[in-house]
């Protein structure tokens, strides 16, 4: 079944979106780092990711999607999933040769250029951060296959795909089912800019290393776009004291004091990674407005969305501010309710 026949009918309702290909990025590296060893994070092998893409494509086609573009990673996750649907019009938009986050960043730029109406990403917070580096205000349906999964949806890929198909067919516009996500914009003196979607952390470690952020005594500061007590990772640390919603025009800034209990205003036990609770000492906590600059000085390492990413030398500093310039994250349930109301799936 395809719902593309409805596209023209709904274009007169005033709520139709732009028609364009569905982008697909499946990060082959997500769900495999050292956090499987030091914490109890989920493992996502690439067969499972392929199956998830397959279900999402079936959902999207059922909802009327007719054109797909994808990052062709060396694992062939998307290509293999699409091979089971030879009737689907799909093309690789980029060959993922570097096997690093650069592939995702480059694919994001190419998908923007190609006019994708919506993009499905498979990964965790880190994958979506990489995509956002290439296309900051992308229309996204993030599907969770990562470690820290505050940003992506934990729902079923078939339905996520259907939502993508409905948007790609122009039956529902991204604007009516999404809200721009908050973003932490980071400038580091003398170096390229960076960003985070959920959390930026200053840790007093020295190296990026294996990336996992699991030395609580080294944490110096945390800046959060969302603080959610029902999440895992740094968002939980803030959320367990002072929740800040995705919809709020606020951000949360925490100053930590390592092992110095006497200095701590708050002592909490928080899940800093899946299956890993630890005690943390918080010296200060501030709810701050959007666009307010926060300055962090080196030495240390900056971690974004759960992974150590950038080294700050003793004479360096970083300026961070939370804005609402992030990706337009599609609310799948809202898309499906609108689709149902329009009778999109009635045969």
């Amino acid at each position: 079944m395809s719902l593309s026949k409805h596209a023209g009918a709904t274009s007169n309702t005033g709520s139709a979106g732009s028609i364009g290909p569905v982008g697909i990025v499946a990060n082959p590296a997500s769900g495999k780092d050292v956090r499987r060893l030091v914490a109890r994070a989920s493992v996502f092998d690439n067969q499972e990711k392929q199956a998830i893409v397959g279900r999402a494509v079936i959902g999207a086609v059922a909802a009327g999607a007719t054109e797909f573009v994808y990052l062709n990673d060396r694992h062939g996750i998307v290509a293999n999933a699409l091979a089971e649907h030879p009737h689907v019009n799909a093309r690789s938009i980029l060959e993922g040769d570097t096997m690093t986050a650069l592939d995702t960043i480059s694919a994001a730029r190419a998908m923007k250029e190609a006019g994708c109406s919506v993009v499905m990403t498979l990964g965790g917070d880190g994958t979506n951060r990489a995509f956002t580096l290439g296309w900051p205000d992308a229309p996204l349906i993030p599907i969770s296959t990562g470690t820290n999964n505050v940003f992506p949806n934990m729902g079923e890929a078939t339905v996520a795909g259907a939502a993508a198909g409905i948007i790609a067919s122009g039956l529902v516009s991204v604007a009516e089912v999404s809200r721009p996500h908050k973003l932490i914009e980071v400038s580091i003196d003398g170096e390229r800019d960076d960003l985070a979607l959920i959390d930026a952390v200053l840790t007093r470690e020295r190296f990026v290393g294996a990336r996992a952020l699991l030395s609580p005594e080294q944490l110096a500061a945390i800046l959060l776009t969302r603080a959610d007590p029902a999440s895992v990772g740094m968002a939980a640390v803030g959320g367990l004291i002072q929740p800040v919603k995705h919809s709020s025009s606020k951000a949360l800034l925490l100053k930590l004091c390592g092992d110095n209990e006497a200095q701590a205003k708050h002592k909490i036990k928080a899940p800093i990674a899946p299956g890993l609770y630890t005690d943390l000492h918080i010296e200060d906590i501030d709810v701050i407005g959007l666009d307010k600059p926060v300055i962090w000085h080196g030495p240390g390492v900056l971690a974004f969305d759960g992974e150590r990413e950038r080294t700050l030398l003793p004479n360096q500093y970083a300026t961070l501010k939370v804005t609402r310039n992030g990706p337009k994250v599609v609310r799948i349930s809202k898309v499906m309710r609108k689709a149902a109301a329009k009778g999109c799936f009635v045969t």
Partner: peptide
């Protein structure tokens, strides 16, 4: 497969990937 670490699950042990060009990560 591309990630040999995927094979760990079949033997009841964790399998993780690390950047083998970075001695600190290893």
């Amino acid at each position: 497969i591309v990630d040999v670490a995927d094979r760990a699950a079949g033997y009841g042990m964790p399998g993780v990937i690390v950047d083998g060009m970075d001695a600190v990560a290893v």
